[in-house]
Simulated assay, not measured.
Amino acid sequence: MRKLSGIFLVGLCLGAIGAVVVTASHETAASQPVAVSEVVTTMSESPVVSATPRPTPSSKATPKPAAEPPAELPRVDAAAVDRLVPGGEVSAVVFDRQRGETTVSVHAERGYTSASLVKLLIALTVLERGGPTASVQRMLSRSDDDLASQFWSTYGGPAIVTRWAAKLSLTGTRPPEDPGRWGDTRITAKDIVRIYQYLLAHGPSAILDALRDATERGSDNFRQYFGIPDAAGTRPWAIKQGWSCCRPTRTLHTSGVVGEDERYIVVVLSEHPASVDYATGSKRVTAVVKTLLG
Rank of each mutant, 00 (worst) to 15 (best):
R250N: 06
E45V: 05
V136T: 10
T41K: 07
A80G: 05
P53I: 08
I122M: 11
L168C: 03
P65F: 04
A67L: 08
A24T: 14
R174S: 14
T251M: 11
E89W: 09
V10H: 01
V258M: 08
R174N: 13
M1G: 12
P69R: 07
D277V: 13
F8Y: 08
S275L: 09
E109D: 14
T133N: 07
P53N: 03
E68V: 00
C245G: 02
G87I: 13
P74W: 06
E89S: 05
V104Q: 07
I17Q: 03
F151L: 09
S149A: 15
K190R: 09
T52Q: 13
A148M: 12
Q32H: 14
A274C: 14
E101P: 02
T280P: 11
G172E: 10
G100S: 01
D220T: 06
G11A: 15
D209V: 12
A51Q: 11
T62I: 00
L120Q: 09
L14W: 04
A123L: 14
S25W: 02
I239H: 00
K3P: 00
V161E: 08
G131D: 03
R83N: 03
D77S: 15
P63I: 04
P273N: 12
T102R: 13
P33N: 04
K167D: 01
V94R: 06
G259M: 13
E72C: 07
K283L: 07
T251A: 12
A71K: 10
Q224G: 11
P236N: 09
A66M: 10
I17R: 15
P229H: 00
V285A: 03
A238C: 06
E216W: 05
G218S: 15
F226R: 02
L9Y: 00
E109Y: 11
A166F: 02
S149T: 15
P158F: 08
R138E: 13
R163V: 10
H202D: 10
S116L: 12
L84M: 01
A287E: 11
E262Q: 01
E128Y: 05
P176S: 14
T291Y: 01
V268H: 09
V85R: 09
F222R: 09
P179E: 05
